[in-house]
Write a protein that binds this DNA or RNA. Structure first.
Lengths: 218, 218
DNA sequence: GTCTATAGTTCGATAGAC
DNA sequence: GTCTATCGAACTATAGAC
């Protein structure tokens, strides 16, 4: 946003504003909006508490900045991946869902740290419900359009349900507890398993969406 | 729990302890654990703030009591419904998931009010992660066992994933349903819509689980 | 059991030096 | 821009009258 300087960012050195955003992302991820304190964020960032208010005015402003920074990247990347999907392929639906799941779970999307903020936001954490809608609704409509293109026999309502269910799967997948590994008595998930998680989520979302289409034809 | 009196409850009059639990359930549902204040709960219940500490000692104790009250009913009802499912039927998997989804969404399970606490708990709200595991894990294992019985070709890991995905669907479904009129405690969905939601969730979970089984046979 | 009153802490935000 | 210092409000929990 700030283009007051023609020069590039300070070479190789992260500025305080980005440090604050990174620290806030971690604290919000662990404690949620209400549970996070400005003091904890300032300590994590290694800056004075007052500096946060200088850059972001209020706690709400900081939260919005944290969410927006990732959301813009996630939705942009999602739509770029979606554009690459060949909608005439027989497994097009699975590729659509993989484009949906990959960005928020990948390391560039903030990994599991931001994914938890994403999940908390989806269940109503934060102050502004309109924030999530404004950031993610346009992208959601594009994915619903893609599903409707691949499955012209399904109603648009059914496609919207398919998208909504996929969002639920994503929210549940990044929740802190109740992981399937523990329920099956297996070792905890490693970072290498992210690809496998994405594949499982897309596979499940595809099977579920297909079932909805067959039950409720237009 | 309290059996100090042989007589029944006060006739037709709800005692203060239950009033506090009901009020706390609503406030926790709207604001999450950290966002809820004892003052707001006391106001909603119409009692003095100090009385809450007399009955529940601390905010954590109150939260645990709110969660436990519904969790016991939900898991008990879930397992009772699961016992009635004929596991030899061709649509047994869908009936298993309907038994999973119905109790937490029904009015006796607290309706959408407690469902939101359930969702927040699943993504890590509250203080004690072990609380959710202790309350829901035994029931989860029974559902995974049922899935493994119906699909002996699937690994137990796959069945655990099928259960975990269904939990994600549930969390996502109740998270997005938050709306202001629920602040008054009135139901926001009609019973017909709830039944349709349960059917859609079970249908989607079945299709997704089936897809996981076919992709990853033992 | 239920109340009022308040202790003791932590919070978000601001003021002002540098 | 970044810091220290602090304000006023809100918080959890406790004390003590009834």
């Amino acid at each position: 946003m700030s283009t007051s300087q023609n020069n590039a960012e300070p070479p190789g050195r992260m500025n305080a504003r980005e440090c604050i955003l990174d620290a806030a992302e971690m604290v919000f991820s662990e404690a949620g909006f209400a549970g996070a304190s400005m003091k904890a964020i300032a300590l994590r960032a290694g800056v004075a508490q007052g500096l946060i208010h200088y850059h972001f005015q209020s706690k709400d402003g900081l939260y919005a900045a944290v969410v927006e920074r990732r959301a813009i990247w996630i939705t942009t990347t999602r739509e770029a991946l979606l554009d690459e999907v060949d909608l005439t392929r027989p497994d097009a639906v699975r590729h659509i869902f993989e484009a949906f799941f990959r960005p928020p779970l990948g390391p560039e999307g903030g990994g599991t740290v931001f994914a938890r903020i994403f999940a908390l936001l989806a269940v109503g954490d934060g102050r502004d419900q309109a924030l999530a809608e404004r950031l993610y609704d346009p992208s959601a409509r594009r994915f619903i359009d893609a599903l409707a293109t691949v499955r012209p026999d399904a109603s648009r309502e059914t496609c919207a349900w398919g998208y909504s269910m996929a969002l639920g799967l994503l929210v549940g997948a990044v929740g802190r507890s109740r992981r399937p590994e523990r329920l099956a008595g297996m070792p905890e998930r490693s970072e290498d398993d992210t690809e496998a998680l994405i594949r499982r989520l897309a596979l499940h979302a595809t099977g579920g969406f297909t079932a909805l289409c067959e039950e409720d034809p237009v």
